Measured scan of single mutants.
Amino acid sequence: MLDDRARMEAAKKEKVEQILAEFQLQEEDLKKVMRRMQKEMDRGLRLETHEEASVKMLPTYVRSTPEGSEVGDFLSLDLGGTNFRVMLVKVGEGEEGQWSVKTKHQMYSIPEDAMTGTAEMLFDYISECISDFLDKHQMKHKKLPLGFTFSFPVRHEDIDKGILLNWTKGFKASGAEGNNVVGLLRDAIKRRGDFEMDVVAMVNDTVATMISCYYEDHQCEVGMIVGTGCNACYMEEMQNVELVEGDEGRMCVNTEWGAFGDSGELDEFLLEYDRLVDESSANPGQQLYEKLIGGKYMGELVRLVLLRLVDENLLFHGEASEQLRTRGAFETRFVSQVESDTGDRKQIYNILSTLGLRPSTTDCDIVRRACESVSTRAAHMCSAGLAGVINRMRESRSEDVMRITVGVDGSVYKLHPSFKERFHASVRRLTPSCEITFIESEEGSGRGAALVSAVACKKACMLGQ
């Protein structure tokens, strides 16, 4: 009897593995994704193909990295998701002549009506938060230079001027797309009239992360975010950046690689679950690469896999709870928690219980395998993109072996128990001629924006502006 049951459990697990095998990517698959990513990057950089390229390769006008001589107080704003952060950054000489960066910050959550109302409502709310922060720190009387981390696709015309191309991540505030974001912020500050600010720089969160990590390690020339969304930036040779005049030196390019796949480059790798996630998203047909990796989508992918296993009578005796059938019910943090389970399955059992399920031991094991399959594919897909960037940098610099540091931020990278190990191992397999160091950014977005502002202020002083 026991043997029969054991055989049935083994057969069930084997069927589960057959279904989950769809998520496995072979090294040849990853090399294919990497080569296609490089081709799209090239198209994004070139003037004649930029418009139709899915990977936009947006110039950021960040050319210099901090040298350690900029000092002063800077205000930093960070808008990239449902939370908005205001930070005071003091850049100065530390002990023994070292450079020191001290920060104080406060988080504000953005109400739904500000995210989806008008641009005026959104930026009025942001300036209200700045006003509140300055009151708390008794700094209303000071006109501070301000660095703005704005983590949406922007076409820069200068370091302090950028046109919002399109909202992502659930934002829909009308009247912002096609307009200068810094102008919208300046107008809102003017409307309030109770404080003055000098907006000197606007950067993407990947750029802010790279600059913040450069402060720790001067070989950091790539910034990457794996959180709600997924994106990367890197220092490109100016001669390859056709959208900006000049051939000397390097400029940081914001790849906006989340949109890779929007022209069909990933079609052969998309599964039924991916198509369902895409169809029910706020932007169907867009940001397809990001939807395979980002935390906004990972939990939902797992939920759809679990429903398939229920329908195949391989999980929960073929019956799903009402909660499990509800879109968004299986949160991405559950994926991390399930994979963090120590082996007694308590954590998995508790999560499934909150979803109205009474799982068996085998159910718990199957749910864990589903989570591992989805998150491992995410790590491997992400590795193909980064390997594409790094191999490109090595080739354009004609280096036999390139040493490089990548600064990384984002909740999936930082909080998932195995993502970074799987990701690092896969990147290294795909970049055999590179020695890569990964560092995690601390308060990256805010500190990085302030350091970019410090560079901009120093330049302005040198130019006598």
Score class of each variant (00 low, 15 high):
L2H: 05
D3R: 02
D3H: 02
R5E: 14
M8R: 13
E9N: 15
A10S: 13
K12F: 13
E14D: 12
K15M: 07
Q18G: 12
I19G: 05
L20V: 02
F23N: 01
Q24R: 15
E27V: 07
M34D: 03
M34K: 01
M37C: 01
Q38D: 01
Q38C: 10
E40Y: 01
M41L: 10
D42C: 07
L45W: 02
R46W: 06
R46N: 09
H50V: 11
V55N: 08
M57L: 04
P59S: 01
V62C: 08
T65G: 06
P66V: 06
P66M: 13
G68H: 05
V71G: 00
S76E: 02
L77M: 04
D78Q: 11
T82C: 10
T82D: 07
F84G: 02
V86E: 06
L88G: 03
E93V: 08
E93K: 13
E95N: 08
E95W: 09
E96V: 08
S100K: 11
V101M: 11
V101G: 01
T103H: 04
Y108M: 02
Y108L: 03
Y108C: 07
S109K: 08
P111M: 07
P111C: 09
T116N: 13
T118Q: 10
D124L: 05
D124I: 04
Y125C: 09
C129Y: 08
I130F: 06
S131K: 02
S131G: 08
S131R: 07
L134H: 05
D135G: 03
D135I: 08
K136G: 11
K136P: 03
H137I: 11
H137L: 06
M139K: 11
M139F: 14
M139A: 14
H141D: 02
K142G: 04
K142V: 09
K143M: 02
F148H: 07
F148C: 11
T149A: 08
F150V: 12
V154S: 13
H156I: 10
E157I: 13
D158Q: 13
D158E: 10
I159L: 12
K161W: 13
G162D: 13
L164F: 14
K169T: 14
K169Q: 14
A173W: 08
G175F: 07
A176L: 01
A176F: 13
N179C: 12
V181D: 11
V181E: 06
V181C: 04
L184F: 11
F195W: 08
E196I: 03
E196F: 08
D198I: 00
V199T: 12
A201D: 01
M202Y: 05
M202T: 02
N204I: 04
D205E: 06
V207G: 03
A208G: 05
I211L: 04
C213S: 08
D217G: 02
H218K: 07
E221A: 10
V222Q: 00
G223E: 00
V226P: 02
V226W: 11
V226Y: 03
G229C: 14
A232M: 02
C233S: 05
M238V: 01
M238W: 01
Q239S: 13
E242T: 07
E245S: 04
E245K: 00
D247G: 03
E248Y: 10
C252E: 00
C252G: 03
V253K: 01
V253I: 08
E256M: 09
W257G: 01
A259H: 14
A259T: 14
A259M: 08
G261T: 06
G264N: 04
G264A: 07
L266S: 07
D267R: 03
D267P: 01
Y273M: 08
R275A: 13
L276R: 08
L276N: 12
V277H: 11
E279I: 14
S281E: 07
A282W: 15
P284R: 14
G285F: 13
Q287S: 15
Y289C: 15
Y289S: 15
E290C: 11
K291A: 15
I293S: 13
G294S: 13
M298W: 03
E300Y: 01
E300K: 02
R308E: 03
D311W: 09
E319L: 15
E319V: 14
A320R: 15
A320K: 15
S321R: 12
R325C: 12
T326R: 08
G328L: 10
R333W: 05
V338L: 01
E339S: 01
G343H: 04
G343S: 03
Q347L: 03
Q347A: 10
L357T: 04
S360P: 14
S360D: 04
T361I: 02
T362G: 07
C364K: 01
D365T: 09
I366K: 04
R368V: 06
C371Y: 02
S375W: 05
R377A: 00
R377D: 00
C382T: 11
G385N: 12
L386H: 05
A387T: 09
A387E: 00
G388P: 07
S396D: 07
D400N: 03
R403H: 04
I404V: 06
T405K: 05
V406D: 00
V406L: 04
V406N: 00
G407R: 03
V408Y: 08
V408M: 09
G410R: 06
V412W: 06
Y413I: 10
S418Y: 07
F419N: 05
E421C: 10
V427G: 03
V427S: 09
R428I: 12
E435P: 08
I436S: 03
T437M: 10
I439R: 10
I439Y: 04
E443V: 07
G444F: 15
R447N: 10
L451M: 08
V452N: 02
A454M: 15
V455P: 01
V455Y: 05
A456T: 04
C457L: 13
C457K: 15
C457H: 15
C457P: 13
K458L: 14
K459M: 15
C461R: 15
